[in-house]
């Protein structure tokens, strides 16, 4: 039998279920909205996103957060589908971090 998918954790033993709520950050809301738009405009489909998450390294997946994983998945998908150029994204990210401000984007 093939190895289980990294996402196939139903039935596994685990610790306490965290009960604290999480207040989404503004950019996370923007990210979800952007992801929804990419879906509705048919640039990406749900199954592609699921596949890209399933292909994440097991250690990364295990330690990832929900919205962190969503970002990594979207980025991986738009690069894979040549919607966005990896170098352009890295350069833009670096420039934003160096500027240290949200105001110019």
């Amino acid at each position: 039998m093939a190895d289980k998918l990294i996402t196939d954790i139903g039935g596994e033993a685990a610790g306490d279920v965290p009960r604290d709520d999480y207040n989404m950050l503004f950019w996370e809301k923007q990210m979800i909205a952007t992801f929804n738009l990419l879906q509705t405009k048919q640039h990406v489909v749900t199954d592609e996103y699921r596949r890209i998450v399933e292909e994440m390294p097991a250690d990364y997946y295990k330690n990832s957060t929900f919205y962190g994983r969503r970002l990594e998945g979207i980025v991986a998908l738009v690069i894979e589908k040549a919607i966005i150029d990896r170098e352009a994204l890295e350069e833009r990210t670096k420039a934003i971090l160096e500027a240290g401000t949200r105001d110019h984007v």
Binding site: M31, T34, L38, H43, A88, A95
Partner: peptide, 19 residues
């Protein structure tokens, strides 16, 4: 870095007319 990555992605998607 994570937010910056998203902001970079968003600005590129907007520049390219995707959204």
């Amino acid at each position: 870095e994570r937010e910056a990555t998203f902001l970079a992605l968003k600005s590129l998607l907007i520049e390219q007319g995707i959204v």
